[in-house]
Design a protein around this nucleic acid. Sequence first.
DNA 1: TATACGTGGAA
DNA 2: TTTCCAAGTAT
Length: 360
Amino acid sequence: MSRPKKTSVPELQSQLLTWFSRHRRAMPWRAPKGVRPDPYHVWLSEIMLQQTTVVTVGPYFTKFIQKWPTVQDLAKAKQDDVLAAWAGLGYYARARNLHKCAIEVTQKHGGAFPRTIEGLLELPGIGPYTAAAIASIAFDQPAVAVDGNVERVVSRFFAIGEPLPFSKEAIRKGAAELALGNPHPGDFTQAFMELGATVCTPRKPKCVLCPWREDCAALKKGIAEELPRKAPKPEKPVRYGKVFYFANGRGEFLIHKRQGQGLYEGLYQLPTTEWIANRAAARRLPPPVKAARLESLGAEVRHSFTHFDLILEIWTGHTKNTVLAGAAWVSAENLEKYALPTLMKKAIRLCSQGKPAKTA
DNA sequence: TATACGTGGAA
DNA sequence: TTTCCAAGTAT
């Protein structure tokens, strides 16, 4: 791979580490400079940070550490409680795997995380990036963690014009060339990502502040902001359905544990129809339980998922329920005990303030 | 290799 | 309003 100036790799590494020692941001999971972080903290934060911003993760991380100070504590928790604490963070498979992983680490590894990439990779929820991040940050092993930040930095540094995801292999090679042999793997991993997060940003990169500006091929070519190129994304379909707010006259309404696998698996929800592509057909869908006095609220919830947009009509009505698995009558005050996805919280909010559910 | 899997903030 | 995207993993 070609570079404009050809500063030696050890010198580049030194430049980045020096830059990081000055610009390292404080984060709840980050140990003070020079202090080895708790592997449990590193692991928990890395799982939470997958596809999620630092700002969003902060309060969740603090809450988890307070509730479950050690990996053994987390292993002892009920999955329902873990999901409830995770509610709102998204990608709930992460929370299910987090709990499984805590149990495995406690039962099969005596409460100590494996120190090698191979060992870490066997744990649920830990993939190539996270394994390398934990190995380097928690144990100072020479592992190269390639996340979205690093992909962007490397794409620009070497001016890799091939679009993602096809360029992944070239990026991995470039990242390894820049990282391998550095004297402080834990700091280097964090520095690499920090550079991407704060300087080598997706839009309007602050190239004048970059410790690698002299050697950056994309900057030299004037195409830094254009990289990395990405393959076009498929269009998002829209799906339609209804949700039902069944009140019981005592300030409570019905929720139940969602059945099946995949989306929102193991979380609670308002009773809902299927979510389908045909809007007219969706309007004719019946509720999942026998109900009386059904009435459209005249409101809808819109929610955008990664791979489809959703529009749900909100209905009120009455039911004796009894059919739905994992059903519970809840009031607005004890909702935080249940794992309710943001979509459902939006719907509930509209119901409880918009038109107070008519009571029996 | 491609697709499923959440959410909130910025431009 | 729409689009992009943020410390990816599982299948």
